[in-house]
């Protein structure tokens, strides 16, 4: 019961999508079922995001309740969740600060605190990648040398200053990098990986539908 029912549901839910692919959705009942099922999936999918929020709230609440070391930080996380979420859930007809439109607390906190911080976290990677390039990017053997030379060539090609430098050797050099490196070797390798990954994804999908792959169900 605990395993069989979900496996049957997974099979039917996927089977509808496969069969419906071969029929005109506007003209068949199967198409209408497919359309309805897809709406349902978008609704259920929304709840999975909430599941994550409930989980993070529980973990932080537990830390605050037990006064775990550094609990004040957990308290800040909890406070931020509520400060962001509660005004967003209240109707904007009550106050311009409620809801999610421009000028609301939700919009303000996102644009002026959340977004800049997220941008900065990823911006820091520029420093790390520069440091890593200096420490680890070594021409130890032929393969590594090839990787290094291509990287340098592409880095030059993708900047106006570097492209001007490459054109000192030949006006057609940047075009050749685009043709043979990006649209030649790179394209071929990416395509090889893409075909391999797509075949893997298709076989995994089949395993899920047939109930062979059940790890998503967790334990129990």
């Amino acid at each position: 019961m605990r395993t069989v029912v979900p496996v049957i549901i997974a099979f039917l839910s996927g089977f509808i999508m496969i069969v419906a692919f071969f029929f005109n959705p506007d003209k068949t009942i199967l198409g209408k079922i497919e359309s309805e099922v897809l709406v349902w999936v978008t609704i259920v999918g929304g709840f999975t995001l909430l599941l994550g929020v409930v989980s993070i709230t529980r973990v932080n609440w537990q830390a605050v309740k037990t006064k775990k070391k550094g609990w004040i930080y957990n308290f800040l996380t909890l406070l931020s969740i509520f400060v962001m979420a509660i005004p967003a859930m209240l109707p904007s007809s009550w106050s311009p600060f409620f809801g999610d439109s421009s000028g609301s607390v939700y919009d303000w906190l996102f644009n002026y605190i959340d977004a800049p911080m997220m941008g900065t976290m990823f911006a820091m990677l520029a420093f790390y990648i520069a440091s890593a390039a200096f420490r680890a990017f070594r021409a130890r053997n032929a393969e590594a040398t090839l990787l290094l030379l291509t990287a340098v060539l592409v880095m030059l090609w993708r900047i106006p200053m570097g492209e001007a430098f490459l054109r000192l050797f030949s006006d057609s050099l940047p075009q050749m990098i685009n043709n043979y490196v990006m649209n030649g070797v790179n394209l071929a390798v990416q395509r090889g990986i893409l075909i391999g990954a797509a075949l893997g994804a298709a076989s995994m999908s089949l395993r899920i539908m047939l109930g062979i792959e059940r790890t998503y169900m967790g334990k129990g």
Binding site: A126, I129, A130, A133, F134, R135, F137, R138, A139, L148, A151, V152, M155, L156, R158, I159, P160, M161, G162
Partner: peptide, 23 residues
Amino acid sequence: GMTMQSLVHLLIIGLVILGNVAF
């Protein structure tokens, strides 16, 4: 942003060369 991009790319290329020479 392209000028800034250019200078940092050149710096990183320089660092890679320096790192390899030193190594």
